[in-house]
Design a protein around this nucleic acid. Sequence first.
DNA 1: CTCCGTGCAAATACTTTGCAAAGCG
DNA 2: CGCTTTGCAAAGTATTTGCACGGAG
Lengths: 130, 130
Amino acid sequence: MRTQNYSRKRQAIYELLLSTDSHPTAEWIYNSLKPKYPDLSLGTVYRNLKLLEGNGVVKSVAVVDGCERYDARMSPHSHFVCKKCARVIDIFFTESMPDPIPDMVKRAYIEGVKDVDSYNLIFYGECDKC
Amino acid sequence: MRTQNYSRKRQAIYELLLSTDSHPTAEWIYNSLKPKYPDLSLGTVYRNLKLLEGNGVVKSVAVVDGCERYDARMSPHSHFVCKKCARVIDIFFTESMPDPIPDMVKRAYIEGVKDVDSYNLIFYGECDKC
DNA sequence: CTCCGTGCAAATACTTTGCAAAGCG
DNA sequence: CGCTTTGCAAAGTATTTGCACGGAG
């Protein structure tokens, strides 16, 4: 197992993701951090996103208009994508609207499927700003 | 409304999609039809897929390893994606396993969401061939 | 004759990668 | 010092597009 050095930039990318619910793209992150880290490069953002994703602390929740959208909220929830403006909105499950998927997975037998370890539920439509 | 000329190749692409449940990529379609249509070009496959998608007779059901996967089955169902081999398997809802989403959408109020017109549910895991 | 459809190749657009230099421990 | 991280630029890869020609009606 390889050790991971402290990295101010990786930290900043992760904290930025934690602080927003906008499900940003790599480029948005790059532009947001560039003022504070003038020598930041886009490649580093991509590299660190993949790395954080591998560590399981960050997730790619959708690909909208060809761009990966990242999220640091790891509790299970789904997303809504606005077809017009590409906004991505969290949909958290609640007591009155519980996550229906685990139950479905438990009962399902599907030909060809050996093991289900995750799922992704995305809604599409129009948001209230459009 | 613009008239659409008969197109043997578009027809072939559509029929190939109807005849398979493998949720192919544009390139797979291209390679499959190339023997019968030696002058087929990849651009044409992409163009016709977009066109058929616009007509609502074909759907992009997932992006696996950066490649769009197409499906001509338009009845609502979900999909399973094998993380190892990228196989995509249909999951049809049945009486004993009904689609839980429409009910969820009906009851949900989500901040920021004006209108939901579709959704996409994808499961990930390992298939029985892996 | 007038659009529609297509091959071909060039252009896009996001993402990944190689490499040498700098940084952490 | 050894291994990690990074900037930079080049490469990669799936997809889209411009254009001129062939085809259908």
